[in-house]
Amino acid sequence: MSRLRAVVFGVVGIVLLGVLWEAYKAFGPAAGFSAFNTQLLPRTSDLAMPHLVDMLTRTVQPTNSSADSQPVWLAVALACLSSLGTAAVGLAIGAIVGFGFALLMLRFRIAQAAVLPWLVLSQTVPLIALAPLIVAWGGRIQIGAFAWDRWMSVAVIASYLALFPVAVGALRGLQSPQVAHVELMRSYAAGWWTTLVYLRLPASVPYLISALRLAAASAIVGTVVAEVSTGAKGGIGRLIIEYAQSGSSDPTKAFSPIAGAVLMGLAAAAIVALVGLSLGRFRRNEVAT
């Protein structure tokens, strides 16, 4: 019941957004609104704010005038899939490394004191500053037939963003068991690993799921931004730039990859939610984060 409600609210929200867009376009000031030389509200021209219908029709038309060009939606979908793959690799690496950090911090008090501040600090390094560095480092890697590719740099950047929520969430989850449960395991003479497997890991599942949800979103954003700043080909980030550059001549085209990126984020969230459903047994005492 509540799920149906959520869907209804979601749809109403999207429709409302569309109505708002068209209403502003119809009734807003043509030159937009600016104060102190800053544009606060956009112009309502077709160039700045195309009609929704035009955007939709544009998605089914070919990308460019060459004879064998794909329709826009297909190009966007393919780019999204490529980015989604990169983000998944990044998420996987980030989750594994983040979980490793969490285990380390759980096992050694000192590690928690030593690693956690660095983790927090690492998240304040701007992505844009990091991207060229990683690309440059990656460029030097060449092991036999294996050569570093641009998309791998993108995946590394995505993993870097995904790592933090997983590390913090997993640590919280692993530390979540009640004292009584920990003492019960102690009364069973259970060692650290046994306690981990039978108590801490199952107890951390709800925390891990919500951490993964955050991490998936971070990995997607990281992938798109990293694709833009490293110029990696094939992904949706690149497409957003490409289509935006054709903005003055083809303004409706630019919105397709943006919508694609949003849908991609939703798809990622849905995948994590599915994983969560399969672990329902461990979420009987669900936590809210």
Binding site: Q178, A180, H181, L184, S187, Y188, L199
Partner: peptide, 15 residues
């Protein structure tokens, strides 16, 4: 394992 212990709260594992 010479003893068994019962706490004030049952302390069952919910999963």
């Amino acid at each position: 394992q010479s003893y068994g212990i019962v706490f004030q709260s049952a302390g069952l594992l919910p999963w």
